[in-house]
Amino acid sequence: MKLDKFDREILRVLQKDATISMADLSQKVGLSHTPCWRRVKKMEAEGLILAKVTILNSKKLNLGVSVFIYVTLKNHDGDSLTDFEKAVQDIDEIVECHTTSGEKDYLLKVIVESIEEYETLLKNKLTHLPLVDHLSSTFALKQVKNTTELPIKNA
């Protein structure tokens, strides 16, 4: 789907506030209500807009420990990768899983309440993931930037 300046602006506004009314959205982007609504619906149908979500404050929910874990697998065949990727889906504390280039195979982001909770997760679940050869954990000390917004460029 080719995006014009209105589409891009709609996406920028919705990233900041998915609860904005269609009337307010159309006013902010300079379109009338119906064309704006049609554009949003088209972007949803095309898969550009995946979901409208509520972003939670992890610290207020007592989930203030973020851990980044590099994972190296024993094998790199298709079944091994598939088995690992399926298994991480079942661990709620893993909030992100990325395949990576270089010496490590995956980068996981884990969010937990405490270091003790992470230790339990590590011993009981992470070390038992399929074909894990090595895990290397790094604890985030402070979050300097946090955004869910993608950098949508002008056309």
Rank of each mutant, 00 (worst) to 15 (best):
A51K: 15
Q89C: 15
V95N: 07
E9H: 11
V67N: 04
K74H: 13
T34F: 08
Q89M: 15
H33N: 08
K28Y: 08
R38E: 11
S137G: 00
Y70M: 10
E9C: 04
A155F: 13
D105K: 02
L14Y: 02
Q143A: 12
L73T: 04
K123D: 11
D133I: 00
K153M: 12
L121T: 07
H76E: 12
G30M: 00
Q143E: 15
K86Y: 12
A140V: 15
K125W: 02
L56R: 14
K74C: 13
D77T: 09
L126G: 00
N146W: 13
P151H: 12
T147K: 08
N75Y: 15
D4M: 04
L63N: 05
E44F: 03
F139T: 06
V132M: 07
L31S: 05
N124A: 12
F139I: 09
R12M: 00
S101W: 12
R12Q: 07
I69L: 01
K60R: 11
E93Y: 07
T54G: 03
L150F: 09
L135M: 02
S114K: 08
K145I: 10
T138S: 12
D17L: 02
C97T: 07
R39H: 03
R38F: 07
G30L: 08
I115Y: 09
G47C: 04
L61T: 06
K41D: 13
T120A: 12
N154S: 15
A45N: 09
E103M: 13
L131Q: 09
D105G: 01
A155M: 14
A51R: 14
T138Y: 14
N154Q: 15
M1P: 14
L129N: 05
N75A: 12
E149M: 14
E119Q: 15
E96Y: 15
V112E: 02
K104W: 13
E113A: 10
F68W: 06
K41I: 12
S137D: 05
V144G: 01
G78P: 00
H98F: 15
K41F: 04
S21W: 04
E113C: 04
S114W: 10
K104E: 06
Y106A: 01
E9Y: 07
G102A: 01
K41G: 02
G78D: 10
I49V: 07
L121R: 01
I20R: 08
S26A: 04
I111K: 00
F6P: 00
T72M: 10
L31I: 02
I115G: 08
I94V: 07
D90P: 10
D79P: 03
L129K: 06
E119V: 11
E96F: 15
L81V: 12
K52A: 07
V53S: 01
I49E: 04
D90R: 14
L3V: 00
L126M: 08
H33P: 08
I10E: 00
E116S: 14
V67K: 00
I111N: 05
T72L: 11
S26E: 01
L108T: 03
L150T: 09
S101E: 11
G78L: 06
W37A: 07
S26K: 02
I152D: 07
A155I: 13
